[in-house]
Simulated assay, not measured.
Amino acid sequence: MAIKRCTSAFAAVVDGAPRVVTVGTLVEDTDSVFKGREQLFEDVNTYVSRRSGRAETASAEPDEKRSLPSRRAGRKGAGRPSADTSETTVHGGAEQQEGRS
Score class of each variant (00 low, 15 high):
1 M>C: 04
1 M>K: 04
2 A>L: 02
2 A>E: 14
5 R>Y: 09
5 R>N: 06
6 C>A: 00
6 C>G: 04
7 T>R: 11
7 T>L: 09
7 T>N: 08
7 T>E: 14
9 A>K: 04
10 F>G: 04
10 F>M: 00
11 A>L: 02
12 A>V: 02
13 V>T: 07
13 V>Y: 05
13 V>I: 08
14 V>W: 04
14 V>E: 03
15 D>P: 02
15 D>T: 02
15 D>L: 06
15 D>A: 11
16 G>I: 05
16 G>W: 04
17 A>Y: 03
17 A>I: 02
17 A>T: 03
22 T>C: 07
23 V>E: 09
23 V>P: 04
23 V>F: 01
24 G>P: 00
24 G>S: 02
24 G>Q: 03
27 V>E: 05
28 E>L: 02
29 D>R: 01
31 D>T: 00
31 D>E: 09
31 D>A: 01
31 D>R: 01
32 S>W: 02
34 F>Q: 08
34 F>I: 03
34 F>N: 06
37 R>A: 15
37 R>C: 05
38 E>T: 02
40 L>K: 02
40 L>D: 11
42 E>L: 03
42 E>K: 00
44 V>A: 15
45 N>Y: 12
45 N>M: 08
46 T>G: 11
47 Y>E: 06
47 Y>G: 12
48 V>T: 07
48 V>E: 13
49 S>N: 13
49 S>G: 05
49 S>K: 11
51 R>P: 03
55 A>T: 09
57 T>D: 14
57 T>F: 09
57 T>C: 08
58 A>G: 15
60 A>C: 10
60 A>T: 08
61 E>S: 10
61 E>P: 01
62 P>E: 12
63 D>F: 08
64 E>C: 10
65 K>M: 13
65 K>T: 06
67 S>G: 10
70 S>H: 15
70 S>M: 12
72 R>N: 14
72 R>D: 13
75 R>V: 09
75 R>I: 09
76 K>W: 13
77 G>W: 09
81 P>I: 04
83 A>I: 03
85 T>Y: 10
86 S>E: 12
87 E>F: 09
88 T>W: 12
90 V>C: 07
92 G>W: 08
93 G>R: 03
94 A>M: 12
94 A>P: 07
94 A>S: 13
95 E>I: 04
96 Q>S: 01
96 Q>D: 06
97 Q>W: 14
97 Q>I: 13
97 Q>T: 15
98 E>S: 09
98 E>V: 10
98 E>Q: 10
99 G>K: 05
99 G>C: 06
99 G>Q: 15
100 R>A: 08
100 R>S: 12
101 S>M: 09
101 S>Q: 10
